[in-house]
Amino acid sequence: MKFAILVNEGPYTHQASDSAYQFAKAALAKGHELFRVFFYHDGVNNASRLTVPPQDDRHIVNRWSALAQEHGIDLVVCIAAAQRRGMLDENEMKRQGKDANNIAPGFRISGLGQLVEAGIQADRLVTFGD
């Protein structure tokens, strides 16, 4: 089956991101396809390269990046939700005249159309969040 995942909550505050990751790993292990993971609302914070959790805890951001690298998963961060929460890639940093960017490897910033497209293309769109 072809899955798509929507993550609506930030890392650590809420278990949604952990559950989404575990679901993604389990689906891939069973041989399913993962079309895209879309990060919306506070979920965009899952893409912050500057995240520094305590060493004895899971690193949620790096874990997503590794999943993208190992399985070629498309991790998409909503641009509008990202911008209002201070999440910028290099292009947006320049375009907005800011002095830093913070998007982790494996993530890309794009529009909400990517979420609707994921709903159309996937057999199931699974939402994680409140």
């Binding site: 609506n8 919306y40 609302h41 509008a80 529009g111 909400l112 159309g113 979420l115 497209e117 409140d130």
Partner: peptide
């Protein structure tokens, strides 16, 4: 912010 951002998805979906 769920309602406001939720509405943004709805508006985008119209283009599809």
């Amino acid at each position: 912010i769920y309602a406001l951002e939720g509405l943004e998805v709805v508006l985008i979906s119209a283009a599809f």
